[in-house]
Each structure stands twice: as structure tokens, then as C-alpha cells.
Amino acid sequence: MASQTSHSHEHHIVPTSTYLLTLILLVLLMLATVWAASFNLPAIGPFSGTVVNQMVALIIATAKALLVIMVFMGVRWSSTLAKLWVASGFVTLILLFGILGDYTTRHYEHQHGWEARPDGSLPRSTPDEEVVPPINANDLNVKIRQ
């Protein structure tokens, strides 16, 4: 059995300075993302400014996450097997985001009758008898809850 294990108890001790530097980098990145969020960034190509803003925030977040994973969690120094399993969760997560493929390729909009009332009360809590005149032609005024 021992043949297959890379003996990790000859462990790698990372100097404090590395950790401290990482922490400083992380805090700086955090400040950078707050700072970047205070601007309305311009649109780039097909992406609207909103998307660009969000992309910047997420790229910084990913950078921070990578720092934490690589340095703090020590993946940089761990076995290939551990690296594979680190990746597996995130890869599967990307597959999960494949669900978005459905929402981007179909009409996804709720009909009016289904939204809760403008006064904020949930439609299911309104009395049955109440008949609300149609808001527009497409309104079905469906009763939500008996």
C-alpha cells in the first residue's frame, strides 16, 4: 500500500511571510473589488456595462478564491489526486450551470395574473371572492390558491 502513497508527512512547511503576503493580497483585492464596483463600467463588445461590472467583480473573487485554495489550503503543494478532487467539484458545478442553457433559449416570462398584488400581499392570501379586473389583455387573472 505504501507504494502508492506519496509520503506527505515529509510535509512542506510554508514560511509565514508567504501567508502574510497572501493575506495582504487578499485584502487589497477585496478593496479593489469594492472600488471597482463604485464605477459604472462601459460596455465591452457584446457585454453591457452591467455585465462588465459583474465580470470584474467575479474575476477578482475568483482570483481571491484561487489564492485561498492554492496557498492557504495548500493545494499548490499537494498531490495530483487532491488537485483532481479540488477540480471535480468546480467542474461539476459548471455542468450544473448548463441549466442556464434552457433559460437562454426559451421565452421565460411570467404572466401577470400570477404575480403577487402590488400592495405586497401574496395572492394566495387574498380572499377568493375578490375579482380583480384585468390589468391588460393578456391577463388571465387566475386564482392562485383556494
Binding site: G113, E129, V131, V132, P133, P134, N136, A137, N138, D139, L140, N141, V142, K143
Partner: peptide
Amino acid sequence: ESSALAANAVQANTP
């Protein structure tokens, strides 16, 4: 069609 639907929808709400 949509006004037909709307008009009937009102009736759908009557008890």
C-alpha cells in the same frame, strides 16, 4: 384572440 381571452377570463372569475 387576446381580448376574447381577457373577456372570458373575467367570467372565469365569477363564482
